[in-house]
Structures are given as structure tokens and as C-alpha cells.
């Protein structure tokens, strides 16, 4: 499975990663290798086989609807790189 530079750029945008030209090429090659190795699985006949997304057959796990104390707002922003009072500040969005 050959991955193109355009694929890499599209995926990098979805994943929000800035890649240098060199990184793009390295990743393109490495992704191709891994996907080539993964090709064996596409040859396996899995018709009628359901997918497993959870290792264990648990169902219906809930918590009861009870409000509990929230964090102290000082703690909320204690790890933020950029905050104004108790709000997180981010660069312009558009």
C-alpha cells in the first residue's frame, strides 16, 4: 500500500500536526511499510465475522444521576499555558 505525500498532508491536517517536508517523506515511507505489512490481514476471509471493539462482554454500566462537587476553579486552570482568570485563553479561531 503506497501512501502519497498528499495522503500524508491530509492526515496531518486531520491530526493537527505540523510536519516538515522531510518528516512528511519519512512518515510517508514508514506508513507505507507498516500498511504493506498489514496487507496480510486484508487477505483473511472475515465474512460473517463480527468486529470486536471491547475485549469483554460487559453491557449497561451506568452511574446514578447525582451531582458532585466540581474542582476548585484555581485548580482547573493550574496547568494552563494561557488563562484569563478562570477561563482558558486561545488564539483566534477563524
Amino acid at each position: 500500500m503506497a501512501v502519497s505525500i498528499e495522503d500524508v498532508e491530509h492526515v496531518a491536517k486531520l491530526a493537527r500536526l505540523h510536519l516538515t517536508g522531510e518528516e512528511k517523506e519519512t512518515i510517508r515511507r514508514q506508513l507505507s511499510d507498516v500498511l504493506e505489512h498489514a496487507r496480510v490481514i486484508s487477505e483473511v476471509d472475515t465474512s460473517g465475522v463480527p468486529p470486536t471493539s471491547h475485549a469483554l462482554p460487559l453491557v449497561n454500566v451506568y452511574r446514578e444521576d447525582e451531582a458532585r462537587p466540581s474542582l476548585d476553579p484555581d485548580e482547573v486552570v493550574s496547568n494552563a499555558a494561557w488563562a484569563v482568570e478562570h477561563s482558558f485563553k486561545v488564539p483566534r479561531i477563524l
Binding site: 451531582a67 458532585r68 462537587p69 466540581s70 476553579p73 482547573v76 482568570e85 478562570h86 477561563s87 482558558f88
Partner: peptide, 13 residues
């Protein structure tokens, strides 16, 4: 999670 759903309030409270 257990946080309250009340409307408004101080940001991130």
C-alpha cells in the same frame, strides 16, 4: 461525570 448541569455560573466552576 458528577458536575452539576446548572446554567451559567462563573467560567469553569
Amino acid at each position: 461525570c458528577g458536575c452539576s448541569t446548572d446554567f451559567g455560573g462563573e467560567p469553569n466552576s
